[in-house]
Amino acid sequence: MKQVRISIIGFGSVGQGVAEVLMKKQDYLTKMGLDIKVIAISDSKGSFINQNGIDLNSALEQKRQKGTVANVQKTGVEIINEIEHDVVIETTPTNIEDGGVGLENMLASFENGRHVITSNKGPLALKYKYLVDTANLSGCKFKFEATVGGAMPIINLIKGVLAGNDILSIQGILNGTCNYILTRMLEEEASYEQMLAEAQERGIAETDPTYDVEGIDAACKLVILANSVFDMDSTYKDVDSVGITKITPESMLLAYNDGYVTKLIGEVRNGKLSVGPRLVPVGHPLSVGDTLNVASVQTDLAGPVTITGRGAGSIETASAILSDLIAICNNDN
């Protein structure tokens, strides 16, 4: 049995999803010969430490009841610096101004020789190359499938399954909130404002939806994808982004009558990065609705390959983190 000691830094929707998935898949992991021990969990108020492995059920219970797991006044960075373990699961909030606490956590992890798995886009959308280089220099693995498209395994698809192919371009729907709003605008022939309100009511859009609807979230994901696939060193500010706020239901109807749906599409082509509304032929693989994400990769050998999946959600995102964790444990790249 291979013992792997991990911490979960950030215990919100995704962090808790990771805990649930680890419990659910315990037998599966045991069969693979993996004994995954969570030795610390941090949220914004402090941390919970148990060197022998935390009982995840009671940690989740405590988080639900008290709003925090903290039983010691230690921050996430202190856990990373002070407690011996192998893998840091970094699921703190995204900060695209300066990378925030996530960036700090990642750098501290590499400094201490710990592998990092993250769902946090901010640091990667700002300092991709710096982070990857730092990880390499310290001999650490750095996996971030969950940052792009949640459960949709696009990075691992390209790097793993499609290895050997030259990637010519990538196009996709990388923001589930926008996809939901646009899908509903066409269905109801309703205005952007109305369907944004509906999305907010359903918990699909945030109270301040700016990052989603202005295309910034999609731009962050596109940059991470482009950097990792094309070995670029771009930031989300290099993306030419247009959001969905100006789209009218009338325009969507006009397009639909001619066989097109209107989608917010992110695209990498010839080194150019763009996010903006585009017309997608009805029935085209990219014309998925609801909150779905989708990405289409043009390859030289395999031709076009398209993958679709849920772009967000606690368990869905944890699924991407789990597959990164298994890859690290198995020493895959």
Binding site: E267, G276, R278, L279, V280, H284, Q298, P304
Partner: peptide, 12 residues
């Protein structure tokens, strides 16, 4: 004015 173009569907 906002212009919305079709996606590139040709393989290049």
């Amino acid at each position: 004015l906002l212009v919305i173009e079709p996606i590139e569907t040709q393989f290049i």
